[in-house]
Design a binder for these strands. Structure first.
Lengths: 161, 161
DNA sequence: TATTGTTATACTCTATAACTATA
DNA sequence: TATAGTTATAGAGTATAACAATA
């Protein structure tokens, strides 16, 4: 066993009668951490940005008409103050814009600027490459199976809420 | 579609010819974030502790003879300074202890104290419950399949290093 | 009164790099 | 020279709560 494998192999800490679930969780966590670390590093090195910023822009790219701060907060699963902070940064860099909404002066609509759209397109292309690479070890059929199984897991988390 | 489902359903942002991989990644990330959030919240509310602290103690529980700071750093996939900080906290609370190693005065052996072992046993019991609950939506066969597929993903990440 | 969004604050976690002590 | 560990620092990310403006 390589030192790297030894390093990453935290799964054996599962030790109870429910060892199967614990091993699965540790493996799931390890996979997402390994991929996420690479994505974060890539975003930082190549684009001088962070995953939350990328995620916010990705939401806006899907909604050209714009999203309210509250929508962003829900979708990104973080509290409002954080969305304000990230949005402020992106506005300062000219990547997104806040525009008022008629009929409710409390609300803003946040959208990508043209610069933001171009910038996001660049990042998304690289991001796609990193992700495709991460799953190259699986056959198309395995990709599909994994997607289906994780769908059941995700569905169940929502039922637990 | 419920608001919650809508909120969590970030997957549709995948839009390229490699949509399958992107959808899979977003689903994997969502699953691990949902479970991790619950574990973090549980550790904070019930035990006033954090996931990195729990993970460090879990490593020590697996190694009653103790681990060197460097080993912990490798296993937890974080840099040395951070291990020092977390270890300092746990030592201050009497949960772990540093003891010298004869033959190399640079090295420390970090171990759980008796209090640390009892404390970890409490946490591990609850932790197991949260994890078992998270995967209740899967049959034993599906648990096994998912574990196998994630094993391939994990294996491939190591090859990419 | 309730809601949208902002501000202020504090804390955890992390990486980096300079440093000490020992090998 | 190299290694084990610490210290110092800075920044990301987060939650909480108080607040202002509007509904």
């Amino acid at each position: 066993m390589s030192e790297l494998q030894e390093t990453l192999d935290m799964e054996a800490r599962a030790h109870s009668e429910h060892a199967q679930e614990l091993r699965l969780w540790l493996r799931l966590l390890t996979c997402s951490q390994l991929i996420e670390k690479r994505v974060r590093a890539g975003l930082r090195e190549h684009f001088d940005t962070t995953l939350p910023r990328f995620d916010l822009m990705a939401q806006l790219e899907r909604h050209p008409e714009g999203l309210k701060m509250k929508d962003l907060s829900h979708r990104l699963m973080v509290t409002g103050g954080n969305v304000t902070g990230i949005t402020d940064q992106l506005v300062a860099e000219g990547l997104v814009e806040r525009t008022g909404v008629e009929g409710d002066r409390r609300v803003f609509r946040v959208r990508l600027t043209e610069l933001g759209r171009r910038s996001f397109a660049d990042m998304a292309e690289q991001h796609e490459h990193w992700i495709v690479e991460a799953f190259e070890g699986l056959t198309p059929r395995e990709l599909e199976q994994l997607h289906r199984l994780l769908g059941k897991v995700k569905q169940y988390q929502k039922e637990l809420e």
